[in-house]
Design a protein around this nucleic acid. Structure first.
Length: 823
RNA sequence: GGCGGAGUGGUGAAAUGGUAGACACAGCAGACUCAAAAUCUGCCGAGGGCAACCUCAUGCCGGUUCGAGUCCGGCCUCCGCUACCA
C-alpha cells in the first residue's frame, strides 16, 4: 500500500468516483430537509483565480457538512456567460464570442472539477445557452405586458469610440473601462425595468433578513434612499401654472428666496424670457457637454443662469427668481429645488455668487444669525423665526406643523421620495440576450409573439469593433415583418444587461431542464429559497438588489412562492497578496493550477479556509500553504503509523476506560463538539481546523499500553478524518478507506460527541486577587462553591497578596474562577 | 460630507464580560544525518530578576463592573461603499 502522501493520485481517484457515482446529484425528496447552497456563479473569463477557489471552498465545506448532517443538499454550478469581454476577445482574435465563451467554460469547468467540489453537475447551465435565454425573453414579455418593462428616453453613459451605453459601474474615472475614452452623456431611447415599483417592499424586507450581513442591508437601504418630506407647489408669477419641488426641509420654506431648476428640467426653456433666452440656451448646451461624473464632483464650481421668470413663495409671498443651476439633478425629486441659502450650503454658495437675498428662518439656541455676516449655511435644528405663526417653535416640530399647514392651504403635501431609479437594461451589444421586440411604423412597439420565441442570436456576425452593435448592422436580423399587420418592420437590436441573467439563475437551477415554461413551480417551490448564498461584497447592491427584485416579480407573475431569494448571505473577503488585491498588473497572482499540481486541491482548500475567517480579507502566504500541506502529511503519516495498532480494535467500552484513556477520549469528543459548533453556528472554519490541529498534537505522541488504547486511538483517528472531511475531502476519503471502512465517507454521518465523555474530572480554576491573576488551582469536578472559595483563600500564592488586608468579597464562577476582593 | 467596517506579538490570527495571544507562519536552539532535505523536540509580546516570580501590554482618553480586547461615551488612524440626494 502506498505509504507516501501523493495528492495527485488520491484526488484523481476520488474525483472520478464521485463523478461516476453521481454522488452529489440532488433530487427533490419531501422526507428530507432540503438545503439549497449556492455560490455566485463565475464569469467564464478564461481561468479561475484564487477568489473563486476561496469562494467555492467556503461553500463546499458548508455543503459537505450539511450533507453529513442529513440534509438534502442542492449545490449547483454554472456560468454567467454573456458580456463584453467575450465580444472584445472576438474583435481581437477575429473569432466568435460563443467560441471564446464555451472554450473558457470547458477549461474552467475542468479546473473547478480538479478542486473536488461537491457540485451537482447535472444542473449546470450557462446563461448564453439558448435554453436559458429563451425563457428570459418570455419573462421579459410577461413583464412588458404588466408594464414592468417599458421604454423611455433618458440620459445614459455613452462611449463615443465603442458606440455603446455603459453601465455606471463600467465607467472608471469618467472614462470607458475598455478604451479609456471620455464618457459622454447621451439621450437615448432605452428599455427599463420598473424596480421602483418595488422600492418599498425591497426596503421593508431588509428588516426581515437577519441572515444577511448588516452592512449589506445598510448599503441597500442607502441605495434605495427613502426620505420623508413634502412636495410644494410654487405658483409662477402671472400664470396659473406652478413649479413643484421636493424638499425634506419644509421647515425652512419661509426662507426660500429663489428657485433652482435642473438644466434638463422640461420647463427650463419655456421659462426663459426673450432677453435671457440666449444665455439660457448657452447654459443648457454647456451642461449637456459636461459629463455627469465631472458635473457631480465635490469641488465642481456652482454655476447657474437666470431664466428671467419668477415664482411666488406660497407661504411668505416672496417673489423668487427662477434659476437653472448645474448642481440640481433632474433624476432626484422633481428636478426643482426651493433655494434656502441660509440653511443649505449649496444654496448659500449660489446666493453669494449671484448676489441673491438671504433670510434666516431658524436660529440656533441662544444665538442670532445675521444674514449679512454668515460665512456658511446653518443646517442644524433650532428655533423658528421669520416664519409667521410658526415662530418660536422647535424646527423639528415645525416640520410636521408646516407640512400640515401646506396641505390645508392646498400648497403641497407630505410625500416620500426614493433615490432608487428604474433599471436601464438596454445594451448596444451583440453578446447578450436580444430584447424580443419589433418596431412597426404602423403598429409601434410590438412584442415578439410567444410562438416566435426565442429570438436567436445570429451566429454569422461580423465583429469590427466599430460602428456600434454588430446586430444593428445585420440586415438579416433587423429586417422582419410586423406580427400584427404583416408589413415590413425592424427588430430591436439592443440586448439585455447581463445583470438580468444573474437575477434569476438561482431559480432556473431548481429545474434546469424544464421545457414547458420559465420555471417548474413545484421544483422551485421545493428548493427555494436559497438557504446559504456566498459571494463577494462587491455585489452588495447591484446583483443582490436585482435578484431580490426579480424574485418579487416572479412571485407576482405567479411563477414562484418565495418572497426573498437568499435567506442567509455570506460575503467573503478578497484574496490579498503582498498588501494588494491579486491582479495581473501587480504581478502578485497565484495560479490555482500551479498550486494544485504542486500541493493538491486539499492543500489549496485547507489553506484558504485556515488562514482567515471567511468574511475577512485573506493574506496569501506561500509558507502558510506549506504549513497546510505539512499538516495533511502529518495526518496521513499518523494514520499509517497506527494502522497495525488499530487494525483489530473494536468499539470503545466507555465504562471500563483507564484514567489516561478517558483523558485522551475527552480531547477527541471535545474536538468533535468544538468543530460542530464552529461549522454549524458560526462558519468559523479557521478555528475549527485549529482545534483539529490541537487534537493531532495530542494524538501524535500518545502512547499507552492499556487494553483499550487501540480502540480509543481508532475512534480518535476516525473522528479526525470525519471532522476534516468537509475541508479536505480527498485525503480523508482515502484514509477512511485505508482504515477499512467499506462505505464511502461522503455517505457517512457527521459524528456526535459523547456527552459523558466531555465532562472534565478535574478543573483548572483561576484565582484572582482584585481582578489580577495570582494563582491556579486544580479541583475535582463538582467541588461546591464554598469549598472552592475556601481552597482559593488557603492557596499559598494567594496568601501573600491578601496578607494584612481585609477580604471584602469573594466572587466565584462555577468551575472557572475565584476573585478575591481585598482592601 | 454621509454611511458602514476594522485597529491585539515579527506575520495571519484566537479569546459566551472571567488565565490576552489558542492554532499556524516566520525566527532561534537542539535531536537525527558524513552532510543536506524531510521529520521530531524545545523556546518564542516588552521590561526586570540567578530564580520562584513581578511590572507593563489589545489605537488614545474617560466611564460601568469584583473583573473590560469584549459593554457605554468621546477622540485618532486605516479600509470599504456612497456622494452637490434638496
Amino acid at each position: 500500500m502506498e505509504q507516501k502522501y501523493s495528492p495527485k493520485d488520491v484526488e484523481l481517484k476520488w474525483q472520478s468516483v464521485w463523478e461516476s457515482e453521481k454522488t452529489f446529484k440532488a433530487a427533490a425528496d419531501k422526507d428530507k430537509q432540503k438545503y439549497y447552497l449556492l455560490e455566485m456563479f463565475p464569469y467564464p473569463s478564461g481561468r479561475i483565480h484564487m477568489g473563486h477557489v476561496r469562494n467555492y471552498s467556503i461553500g463546499d465545506v458548508i455543503g459537505r457538512f450539511k450533507r453529513m448532517r442529513g440534509f438534502n443538499v442542492m449545490h449547483p454550478m454554472g456560468w454567467d456567460a454573456f458580456g463584453m469581454p467575450a465580444e472584445n476577445a472576438a474583435i481581437q482574435n477575429k473569432s466568435h464570442p460563443a467560441t471564446w465563451t464555451y472554450e473558457n467554460i470547458a477549461y474552467m469547468r475542468n479546473q473547478i472539477k480538479k478542486m473536488g467540489f461537491s457540485y451537482d453537475w447535472d444542473r449546470e447551465l450557462a446563461t448564453c445557452d439558448l435554453d436559458y435565454y429563451r425563457w428570459e425573453q418570455k419573462l421579459f414579455l410577461e413583464m412588458f405586458a404588466k408594464g414592468l418593462a417599458y421604454k423611455k428616453t433618458s440620459f445614459v453613459n455613452w462611449c463615443p469610440k465603442c458606440e455603446t451605453v455603459l453601465a455606471n459601474e463600467q465607467v472608471e474615472d469618467g472614462c470607458c473601462w475598455r478604451c479609456d475614452t471620455e464618457v459622454k452623456q447621451k439621450e437615448l431611447d432605452q428599455w427599463f425595468f420598473r424596480i421602483t415599483d418595488y422600492a418599498e417592499e425591497l426596503l421593508e424586507n431588509t428588516y426581515k433578513l437577519p441572515g444577511w450581513p448588516e452592512r449589506v442591508l445598510v448599503m441597500q437601504r442607502n441605495w434605495i434612499g427613502k426620505s420623508f418630506g413634502c412636495e410644494i407647489n410654487f405658483p409662477l408669477e402671472n400664470s396659473t401654472d406652478s413649479i413643484r419641488v421636493f424638499t425634506t426641509r419644509q421647515d425652512t420654506v419661509f426662507g426660500a428666496t429663489f428657485m433652482s431648476l435642473a438644466p434638463e428640467h422640461p420647463r427650463a426653456l419655456d421659462l426663459a424670457t426673450p432677453d435671457q433666452r440666449d444665455s439660457v440656451i448657452a447654459f443648457i448646451d454647456k451642461i449637456r457637454k459636461t459629463d455627469r461624473i465631472k458635473r457631480t464632483a465635490d469641488d465642481f464650481e456652482k454655476e447657474g443662469v437666470f431664466t428671467g421668470s419668477y415664482c411666488i413663495n406660497p407661504v411668505s409671498g416672496v417673489r423668487m427668481p427662477i434659476f437653472l443651476a448645474n448642481f440640481v439633478l433632474m433624476d432626484y425629486g422633481t428636478g426643482a429645488v426651493m433655494a434656502v441659502p441660509t440653511h443649505d450650503q449649496r444654496d448659500f454658495e449660489f446666493a453669494r455668487k449671484y448676489d441673491l437675498p438671504l433670510k434666516v428662518v431658524i436660529q440656533p439656541e441662544g444665538k442670532t444669525l445675521d444674514p449679512l455676516s454668515m460665512l456658511e449655511a446653518y443646517t442644524e435644528a433650532g428655533i423658528m423665526a421669520n416664519s409667521g405663526q410658526f415662530d418660536g417653535m422647535q424646527s423639528g416640530d415645525a416640520k410636521e406643523a408646516i407640512a400640515n399647514f401646506l396641505h390645508s392651504q392646498g400648497h403641497g403635501a407630505k410625500t416620500v421620495n426614493y433615490r432608487l431609479r428604474d433599471w436601464g437594461i438596454s445594451r448596444q451589444r451583440y453578446w447578450g440576450n436580444p430584447i424580443p421586440v419589433i418596431y412597426c411604423d404602423s403598429c409601434g412597439v410590438v412584442p415578439v409573439p410567444e410562438k416566435d420565441l426565442p429570438v436567436v442570436l445570429p451566429k454569422d456576425v461580423e465583429f469590427s469593433g466599430e460602428g456600434g452593435s454588430p446586430l444593428a448592422q445585420m440586415d438579416s436580423f433587423v429586417n422582419c415583418t410586423c406580427p400584427v399587420c404583416g408589413k415590413a418592420a425592424r427588430r430591436e437590436t439592443d440586448t439585455m444587461d447581463t445583470f438580468v441573467q444573474s437575477s434569476w439563475y438561482f431559480l432556473r437551477y431548481c429545474c434546469p431542464d424544464f421545457k414547458d415554461g420559465i420555471l417548474d413551480r413545484e421544483s422551485v417551490d421545493y428548493w427555494m429559497s436559497v438557504d446559504q448564498y456566498i459571494g463577494g461584497i462587491e455585489h452588495a447592491v447591484l446583483h443582490l438588489l436585482y435578484a431580490r427584485f426579480f424574485t418579487k416579480v416572479m412571485r407576482d407573475l405567479g411563477h414562484i412562492s418565495a418572497d426573498e431569494p437568499f435567506v442567509n448571505l455570506l460575503t467573503q473577503g478578497m484574496v490579498i497578496k503582498d498588501g494588494a488585491k491579486m491582479s495581473k498588473s501587480k504581478g502578485n497572482v497565484i495560479d490555482p493550477d500551479a498550486l494544485i499540481s504542486k500541493y493538491g486541491a486539499d492543500t489549496a482548500r485547507l489553506f484558504s479556509l485556515f488562514a482567515a475567517p471567511p468574511e475577512k480579507d485573506l493574506d496569501w502566504n506561500d509558507q502558510g500553504v506549506e504549513g497546510s500541506f505539512r499538516f495533511l502529511g502529518r495526518i496521513w503519516k499518523l494514520v499509517h503509523d497506527r494502522l497495525d495498532l488499530i487494525k483489530n480494535a473494536g468499539p470503545v467500552d466507555a465504562g471500563s476506560l483507564s484514567a489516561e484513556e478517558r483523558t485522551l477520549r475527552r480531547a477527541v469528543h471535545k474536538t468533535i463538539r468544538k468543530v460542530t459548533e464552529d461549522l454549524d453556528e458560526r462558519f468559523h472554519f479557521n478555528t475549527a481546523i485549529a482545534s483539529v490541529m490541537e487534537l493531532l498534537n495530542i494524538l501524535q505522541p500518545a502512547e499507552l499500553s492499556t487494553p483499550q488504547f487501540p480502540a480509543v486511538m481508532k475512534e480518535a483517528l476516525q473522528s479526525v478524518i470525519l471532522l476534516m472531511a468537509p475541508f479536505v475531502p480527498h485525503i480523508t476519503e482515502e484514509l477512511w478507506q485505508r482504515l477499512g471502512n467499506k462505505s464511502p465517507l461522503t455517505l457517512t454521518s457527521w459524528p456526535d460527541y459523547d456527552r459523558s465523555a466531555v465532562v472534565d474530572e478535574e478543573l483548572l480554576v483561576v484565582v484572582q486577587v482584585n481582578g489580577k491573576l495570582r494563582s491556579k488551582i486544580t479541583v475535582a469536578a463538582g467541588t461546591g462553591e464554598d469549598e472552592l472559595k475556601a481552597l482559593a483563600l488557603a492557596d499559598e500564592k494567594v496568601a501573600q497578596f491578601i496578607e494584612g488586608l481585609t477580604v471584602r468579597k469573594v466572587i466565584s464562577v462555577q468551575g472557572k474562577l475565584v476573585n478575591i476582593v481585598v482592601g
